[in-house]
Structure formats: structure tokens, C-alpha cells
Design a protein around this nucleic acid. Structure first.
Length: 930
RNA sequence: GCCGGUGUGGCGAAAUGGCAGACGCACAGGACUUAAAAUCCUGGGACCUUAAAAAGUCGUGCCGGUUCGAGUCCGGCCACCGGCACCA
């Protein structure tokens, strides 16, 4: 910025108070049972010290930021937006007397450090440590009131030991559809065993007894499909963490597979590289079992509608029916999923996904070549092409036919890539009259289009009509739904299908199981080893908890091996264990560590558990169960936030946490754009690092501006001028409190002193206008209006208007000849959450004040705001004509008379009939004339 | 296409259905200064009159509605931003 005069010595004040807070551990949060030092400001505020129980501690408030990935680039001014908001609230809640937990840590596993290692050979741990150091220095320079004693990094073995342990919990649990929750796998093992020991624990469980029955129906010898094999298979497929050889998203460029959630528009979310489908042996987590609970419990938490909608869309629940179509001249059936069983009479053909298992079986001799060619064409296409070319439908006839179960008609079976193998059953009944895609397809290939739904608007065209209406042409030999409205038609036909064993009501989800392994070096190794059984078949086994943490091996080359194995496979000694077993060489995705970090903060140093029962219960339970407030960007709407909810529910089922949801209230901050109104990016050159405003104008100005820009959740552009504006405001606050003469002396001393230091600040004396005098009613009114506004806005997280209220106060207080200490002191408590360094410095200059960070929040007294005289606008037909100054308790009749007699009003009502006079007490008068 | 959000001065924005534009930026004028910076004071939606003021008219994306009164509520559009998308 320009060489303009410094508004106030923030360059001395800010480091001074940051050092002071560190030294006092001022923002340390105390757990039940912690030793609270008697001289700690928290102890003094609450008059407690020593070992204190949960009941003796004040009410808790857990306020959390999404912890950052410490990149090499450091923080830009967009980063601290959310951090500033949470810090302001943390400080506000502390002032209100809450026991505030406000932690910070590092989501430090991840791709960039590994890519840097591949390029330079520098160990990712070193890169990560350096980046953490930079991030920590920058975040600390912003003066946030974090409890640094709880700092964590997901890359720390003392942390990921527990991440690995939670994986073991997933591995050793199954989802019980009867109990609708995760249960230790031992129960399933017991239920399937030849000599169960805990029969009483599962004998009433329909699922377990069913599995047992199935298992026991197989011979208990060593030949063929025997009981031990079935038992083993049952156990493996039920685990919440399981291995599968399924087509997965492979990204050549990144050299790893990716989860569904990490693939956007057929490209990797990170780096935008192409991805292809490839069958590989991978670890998966059974998040699909939790689809219904993840959906339902959204109703119990305080998130924005848009965020909940995003999760709902991702889970993608749809109700419908599965219907079996007999293949003509075959014993096989094709099962389809439809949300519109009421349109069954209009199904004039069927479509299988090209990858459907029955395609090759049913293709008629004459069509085999065409089918094979189409399959090959589709396989070549990347998913991107498959969706991009969505405009023109393609497909081929298989030569086979199926029988429509409701009318016995023979309908052709086609294959087309508009039907996805991965959704529903991978096959559809096509109802061209009432489905846009089927309609398009039928038109292109000249397939019959039969109307079965009549729109309620008689003029509407039924061709391609997809809405609800009334069934028509829907009468068969055994069943008719003609004349029924859509909803009833669905019900009736589904019941009929069920009664004939032709189909059933069902629910489908778009959500897929979570692909949980990556071909990476810089991630948590799996606590899993592979062995071979007597027949030479590979099987996996969990390591015991005592083997944790499983540390990654030291490597010099971080690339995948020549055969495409993950980098860990290079560490032969690490992989091959003495007993002949081999370690799993995949690692966990970056999301693993962020799935539970909010729990580790509660008890960060616990060596015996991921989190202790008592701290977990103290910080997570309550009326608003879970983290009280969680603030972060929308980019995690369906990744981190879905994964973390899933893990939390598993931990809840297994009894490790006391709430079903992790985050009660969640707020997304809007993005901060560059000054050019564009997203900040290196290539655009519009990135503003936080260090620049901190150096030029100070942290308090940066914090204040971050919040003053506009509402937290809105997208808004950065403005350097705007920061200077709030900086000027802080300068005004400074001049409100200090004596100008001594400040000039300070400035001179600073320029002449050889080593200007903090002690020079003491040269600055209090403004002589500040005195221990009684406040005038006007001054009290100004103060209490400010208290009310700031307090209300804090509760609503409207920081921009809270700041403008502080500005209004200062503009007013500048004009006071005598400035009462008590009023200014209260103002500093209001200012403190926003500009803590300046507020602390000024607070220290006031006589005998105590600790500001824990000073009680001032209480608003409505009596002080009562006016004797108020201004009442007078409208005629809703248009403002006059403003009357009247006593606050004026009688309505009197007010009416005054309004009618107003010189400015008269011309508008004279000679006209007054229809009505509206008087809103203390607000306005409106005269309606004809 | 579907879902969610947002449209208000030159700019960021503010307004429990009740005086539209608080607060701030930028700008203009003035005071202080040899001068500048900083600071302090003053001004301002548009239009129309006017020497100036006062008065008046219009004004919150567009069209319509409810109401004594609409930026705010309702219906229908348009634009932009974000998410999802051949999901049967």
C-alpha cells in the first residue's frame, strides 16, 4: 500500500498479545478431570480450579473449522474467512461463559506431497512438516484463539494408529438388516458356527437365523460348495470393509483408483485427468448399508437446505418396483427396476446395459456380430464420451424377446448404452410413451409407442408425457388399472405383481459402496496381511490391534512399480513377513483421516483410546448433539461430509460415540474471489496471500474486513480498498482511546530509538477525555443499541452488520466530550471477538480491568433504549407525506388528528373521502383516501 | 433437463410486510498544512424544475397478484452462480 501514515502501532501490538496468549495458554479448553491452574483466566472467570468434574464445568461449546490440507503455497485471503467467523464466535461464547473447544489441525496425507517426492526424492514427511510449519506460522499470525495443545496431524503415527484401528472396527463388523446397525462380526461368526456359544444373542434375529439356515444347508465336508466355504464367503461379504474385484475408476495420470465421489464429469476431481473403468481388486466400505440412515438423519441436523439436498441427491433414493420379465424360449428372466410400475402396459421393448450378464446368452445367432461390435464400441468409450454423446441414442437389437407379464406380449430386447450397468438391475423395461429417453430411442429405431397415461390436462400431448395422470389402455387378462390415478395404479399393480410372484416393491439408491484403497505411498497403510490357504488361494487377515500403528516403509522411489503395483510393493522387506504372509500394499484414501479428526481433538493425547468416553460424552452430547458449529467450504458437501457421517454412525452403533450424527450445525462460507471478481488462482495471478494485508494493515484489519465484506455464506470479491476502510475504522477506535500528544511522543521515540521495542507502547497514555464518570442517558442509549445489535447479529452469524453497529458506536463516541470508562470498557468487550489484539491493548490501558478474553459479555438493558419522543412517518395511500415528532405514548386519536392536520398531508386528503386510517403504534400512520 | 441459491446506487452491501440504500469503499467540496499525506467536517439513487432551495415524479431483474402499505408474501418469466445429470 501507499506510504501513508500508520493508523496505530499494530506491528507491535499484534505480536505482543499473541505471545501473551501463548504464554498464558489463554485458550486452552479443559476436559472433565483436567487440572485447571488457579491463575488461568478460565479458572478465575468461573471460580473453579484443580480437578473438576463434567458437572462442575460450565456448558460446553464445540466450534470447529474444516482442518486444512497444508499445501506448499501457504494461505491466501480466502482461507481465513471461515476461521475468522469461528474465532469470533469462539471468543463470543467464551465471553458468554461457555467452555469453548476450538481446535485446529492438519489433514496432511495427500497427493501433492507425494508428487513432489516423485519429482525431487524428498520424503513426503519432510514436505508435509515444512508445509505444516508455514501454515501454522500464518494461522498463528492471525491471532485465532485455538487450543494448540490439541493440535493433530493425520500423518502422525499416534494419530493414524487410531485411523487404522477404526478400519479394523469396520473390517470386524457387519451391518445387521434386522437391527439396522453395525454389529461385531463375532456374532455372525457365532451364528454360522457348528457349535454356537451365544445362541441366545442371535436366536431371535431373523437375518442371522436365516444366514445360519442357508449355511447349514450345505454339506459339512471338504468337497465342492461346502459349508466352510459358504461360511467364509458369508463372513467376508458381510464385513463393512471388504475386498472386491469390480470395475473401478482408474486414473492413469494419478496412477491410482478413485472413489465415485472423486470422479467429476468423467475426470479426476484432483487434476482433471481422464479416468477409465478397470476391474481391479480393491477395498470397499459398505456405505450403501447406511443409505437410509444417512438420508433420514439429515432431518435431525441443522444444515442448509442446499447442502442437505446435495447429500440427498447423492444418496439418490427412489421408490419403485422390481419386475421379472421371462425371456421367450429361455428359462432366464430379466429383472428390471422401475419407478413407474403403472406404465407396465406401455412397455413395448426392453433394454439391457451392454455389460449385462445375459446379453451374450440371449443374443440370437444372426445378431451376435452386431451385439459384439456394439459392446466393443461402448467399452472403448470413456465414461466422459459416453455421457457427452448423450444427445444421439445408440443401440442394437439382440434378436431375443421377452414376455410382458401383464399382457403376455412378446417384446424385443435391445442393448443400449443409455442403460447403465451400475444402477438398478442394469436392465429396463422401455415405456417410450412416458419416458423421454425411451421415447427418443423408440423414435430413432421405429419401436412401437403405446399411450398408457392420460395427462389431467386434456390438451396436453401424451407423447413423452412423464408426469402423473390417469392410466389408460392398461387392462389385461388378470389385472386392470385403467382409470386409476397414477399413485393408485402403482399401488394396485405392485400388489398384483407381488401376489403373482412376478415382482415386488423396492427402493433403489444411487449411492455406491465407497472405494477405499489407493495405489499411493503417502497414506495410511492397511492393517491387513494376505496369506494362502492349503489350496493356494489368497485370503486376507486383519492384524491384531497390538500391531498398530502400521508404519509405511522407507522408500527412495515413490512411483508405482513397473508391473503397476502400488509404491509400497517396492519395499520387499516390509511387504514380506517372516511367516510367509504379505502386507497389503494399497493405502487408505485421504478421507480416512478426516473422517474422525473432530473426535481426536476431544482427547488428543489419549494413548489408550481414539477418544476417552468421558471427554467424548462431555463435548459431543447435549441438546444439539455433536459438534455445535462446523464451518467450511461446500467442496466437501458429498465427500468428507458423507464419509464422516458414515464412520460416525458405525462408531455410534459400536458404542464408541454417544450421538448418531457428528455435526449438528454446519455453515458453508462463500468463496472469496479476487479483486477482478474471478476465482483466485495462480494462473490468473489474482491470489492475495494473507501475509500481505497482515504486514501492511495488521491482522485485526484483515479479520475485520473478512467479516465486513458481506454475509458469511455469500460469494464476494476481495477489495484492498475495503481493507483500508476497516483499518481506518480501527485507527478511529485507537484515537478514541489514546492521548494524541503521547502518541506523537511514542512515534518520535520509535523512529529515534536504536531498538524500538514493546516498552515504547507504554509511552502512550489514555485519552484525557476518558474519565470514571457516570454515563449520560444518551451515551447509555448509544452503548446499549450497540450491545443489542452486536449480540443479535452474533447469534445469527451476521458479522457484517455487527461490525457496522460497532462503527456507528465509534462515530458517535468520537463526539463525546467526556467518555465514561464503563461505557468504553463494555465497547471493548464487544470489539474483542473481531479485533482482539487492538481490544486487548486498549483494555490494558484502562484502569484495573482483569482479563479481556474472559470478560463477561455485556447485557443489553431495553429500558435504556426507551425514547420519549419518536418520529412517526405519515403516509397517504402508502406514499410518505410527512414525518411527525410525537411523544412515545401519544394516544392514537391524538396522533390521528395530528396527522390529518399536518400542512404537508392536507393537500392530499382535502376534498377526498377518507376510507380508512391505519395506525401502527410507534411505527406509522397511513391514511387511505378514495 | 432437475435441485439449490442470488438479482437493490459507480462498487461491497443494509432493511421483524411499515421513512429503500444503514455501515463502508470510491468520488466531490471544505478545514488544517508552505505543500502533500494523514485527520476532521460536508455532500450525494435517477429524473424534472431552480441561481440555490423547496416541491414533484420515478426507482430494489421483468410481468402480474394479495395488501391501507411489497425489496420483503403469492403466481408466471428472465439472467447469473453452485450442485447433480441417459439414475429407469
Amino acid at each position: 500500500m501507499s506510504s501513508s501514515r500508520r493508523q496505530y502501532p499494530f506491528h507491535l501490538i499484534e505480536p505482543k498479545w499473541q505471545a501473551m496468549w501463548d504464554e498464558q495458554q489463554a485458550f486452552r479448553a479443559f476436559n472433565p478431570g483436567d487440572e485447571i491452574p488457579a491463575n488461568h483466566p478460565f479458572a478465575q472467570r468461573h471460580r473453579i480450579s484443580g480437578k473438576v468434574s463434567a458437572e462442575q464445568l460450565p456448558r460446553k461449546f464445540y466450534i470447529l473449522d474444516m482442518f486444512p490440507y497444508p499445501s506448499g503455497a501457504g494461505l491466501h485471503v480466502g482461507h481465513p474467512e471461515g476461521y475468522t467467523a469461528t474465532d469470533i464466535l469462539a471468543r463470543y461464547k467464551r465471553a458468554q461463559g461457555f467452555n469453548v473447544l476450538h481446535p485446529m489441525g492438519w489433514d496432511a496425507f495427500g497427493l501433492p506431497a507425494e508428487q513432489y517426492a516423485v519429482k525431487t526424492g524428498q520424503h513426503p514427511r519432510k514436505t508435509t512438516e515444512e508445509n505444516i510449519a508455514t501454515f501454522k506460522r500464518q494461522i498463528k499470525s492471525l491471532g485465532f484463539s485455538y487450543d494448540w495443545s490439541r493440535e493433530i496431524a493425520t500423518t502422525d503415527p499416534d494419530y493414524f494408529k487410531w485411523t487404522q484401528r477404526i478400519f479394523l472396527k469396520l473390517y470386524n463388523s457387519y451391518y445387521d438388516p434386522d437391527l439396522k446397525k453395525a454389529i461385531p462380526i463375532e456374532l455372525l461368526e457365532d451364528a454360522l458356527s457348528d457349535n454356537p456359544k451365544h445362541q441366545d444373542a442371535w436366536q431371535n434375529n431373523r437375518y442371522l437365523t436365516g444366514r445360519r439356515e442357508y449355511c447349514m444347508s450345505h454339506p459339512n465336508d471338504s468337497k465342492g460348495v461346502n459349508r466352510p466355504k459358504i461360511r467364509d464367503w458369508e463372513i467376508q461379504v458381510n464385513r463393512l470393509a471388504f475386498v472386491t474385484e469390480a470395475p473401478v475408476w482408474w486414473c492413469e495420470e494419478l496412477g491410482t483408483v478413485l472413489a465415485n465421489e472423486e470422479v467429476v464429469d468423467g475426470k479426476s476431481e484432483v487434476g482433471r485427468f481422464p479416468v477409465v473403468r478397470k476391474p481391479m481388486r480393491q477395498w470397499m466400505l459398505r456405505i450403501t448399508k447406511y443409505a437410509e440412515r444417512l438420508l433420514q438423519d439429515l432431518d435431525t441436523i441443522d444444515w442448509t437446505d442446499s447442502l442437505k439436498e446435495m447429500q440427498r441427491n447423492w444418496i439418490g433414493r427412489s421408490e419403485g418396483a422390481e419386475v421379472d420379465f421371462q425371456i421367450a424360449g429361455s428359462s432366464e428372466k430379466i429383472r428390471v427396476f422401475t419407478t413407474r410400475p403403472d406404465t407396465l402396459f406401455g412397455a413395448t421393448y426392453m433394454v439391457l446395459a451392454p455389460e449385462h450378464r445375459l446379453v451374450n446368452q440371449i443374443a440370437a445367432a444372426g445378431q451376435c456380430d452386431a451385439v459384439a461390435k456394439y459392446q466393443a464400441d461402448v467399452a472403448k468409450k470413456s465414461d466422459l464420451e459416453r455421457t457427452e454423446l448423450a444427445k444421439e441414442k445408440t443401440g442394437v437389437f439382440t434378436g431375443a424377446h421377452a414376455i410382458n407379464p401383464v399382457n403376455g406380449e412378446k417384446i424385443p430386447i435391445w442393448i443400449a448404452d443409455y442403460v447403465l450397468a451400475s444402477y438398478g438391475t442394469g436392465a429396463i423395461m422401455a415405456v417410450p410413451a412416458h419416458d423421454t429417453r425411451d421415447f427418443e430411442f423408440a423414435q430413432k429405431f421405429n419401436l412401437p409407442i403405446v399411450q398408457v397415461v392420460q395427462p389431467s390436462d386434456a390438451k396436453a400431448d401424451w407423447h413423452g408425457f412423464v408426469g402423473d395422470g390417469t392410466s389408460v389402455n392398461s387392462t389385461g387378462k388378470d389385472i386392470s388399472i385403467t382409470g386409476l390415478p397414477t399413485a393408485e395404479a402403482k399401488k394396485k399393480i405392485t400388489a398384483w405383481l407381488e401376489s403373482k410372484n412376478l415382482g415386488r416393491q423396492t427402493i433403489n439408491y444411487k449411492l455406491r459402496d465407497w472405494l477405499f484403497s489407493r495405489q499411493r505411498y503417502w497414506g495410511e497403510p492397511f492393517p491387513i496381511v494376505w496369506k494362502r490357504d492349503a489350496d493356494g488361494n489368497l485370503y486376507h487377515e486383519a492384524l491384531p490391534e497390538s500391531a498398530l500403528p502400521v508404519l509405511p516403509p522407507e522408500l527412495t522411489d515413490y512411483k508405482p512399480t513397473a508391473t503397476g503395483e502400488p509404491p509400497l510393493a517396492r519395499a520387499k522387506e516390509w511387504v514380506n513377513l517372516p511367516d510367509g504372509s504379505q502386507r497389503e500394499t494399497n493405502t487408505m484414501p485421504q478421507w480416512a483421516g478426516s473422517c474422525w479428526y473432530y473426535l481426536r481433538y476431544l482427547d488428543a493425547k489419549n494413548a489408550n483410546a481414539s477418544v476417552g468416553k468421558e471427554p467424548e460424552h462431555y463435548w459431543m452430547s447435549g441438546k444439539a448433539a455433536g459438534v455445535d458449529l462446523y464451518v467450511g467450504g461446500t467442496e466437501h458437501a458429498v465427500l468428507h461430509l458423507l464419509y464422516a457421517r458414515f464412520w460416525h454412525k458405525v462408531l455410534f452403533d459400536l458404542g464408541y460415540v454417544s450421538t448418531p450424527e457428528p455435526f449438528f450445525k454446519l455453515v458453508n462460507q462463500g468463496m472469496v474471489l479476487g479483486e477482478d471478481n474471478q476465482k483466485m488462482s495462480k494462473s490468473r495471478g489474482n491470489v492475495i496471500p494473507v501475509d500481505v494485508p497482515v504486514r501492511d494493515l495488521g491482522t485485526d484489519s484483515l479479520r475485520l474486513y473478512e467479516m465486513f465484506m458481506g454475509p458469511l455464506e455469500m460469494v464476494k470479491p476481495w477489495s484492498t480498498r475495503g481493507v483500508e476502510g476497516v483499518y481506518r475504522f480501527l485507527g478511529r477506535v485507537w484515537r478514541l482511546f489514546v492521548d494524541e500528544k503521547t502518541e506523537t511522543e511514542f512515534e518520535q521515540a520509535e523512529t529515534t530509538a536504536a531498538n524500538p521495542g514493546l516498552e515504547l507502547l507504554d509511552l502512550i497514555k489514555l485519552n484525557p477525555a476518558i474519565a470514571d464518570t457516570a454515563a449520560t442517558p444518551g451515551q447509555l442509549k448509544t452503548l446499549h443499541a450497540c450491545i443489542k445489535k452486536v449480540t443479535d447479529d452474533m447469534e445469527g452469524m451476521r458479522f457484517n452488520t455487527a461490525i457496522s453497529a460497532l462503527m456507528v458506536f465509534v462515530n458517535e463516541a468520537m463526539t463525546w466530550e467526556k467518555k465514561p470508562v464503563a461505557v468504553l470498557r463494555a465497547f471493548l468487550v464487544l470489539l474483542q471477538p473481531f479485533a482482539p489484539h487492538l481490544a486487548e491493548e486498549l483494555w490494558a490501558k484502562l484502569p484495573a480491568s482483569g482479563n479481556l478474553a474472559y470478560a463477561p459479555w455485556p447485557k443489553f438493558d431495553p429500558a435504556l433504549l426507551v425514547e420519549n419522543e419518536i418520529e412517526i412517518p405519515v403516509q397517504v395511500n402508502g406514499k410518505l407525506r410527512d414525518v411527525l415528532k410525537v411523544p412515545v405514548d401519544i394516544a392514537q386519536s391524538e396522533l390521528e388528528a395530528l396527522a390529518k392536520n399536518s400542512e404537508k398531508v392536507k393537500p392530499y386528503i382535502e376534498g377526498k373521502t377518507i376510507k380508512k386510517i391505519i395506525i401502527v403504534p410507534k411505527k406509522l400512520v397511513n391514511i387511505a383516501v378514495a
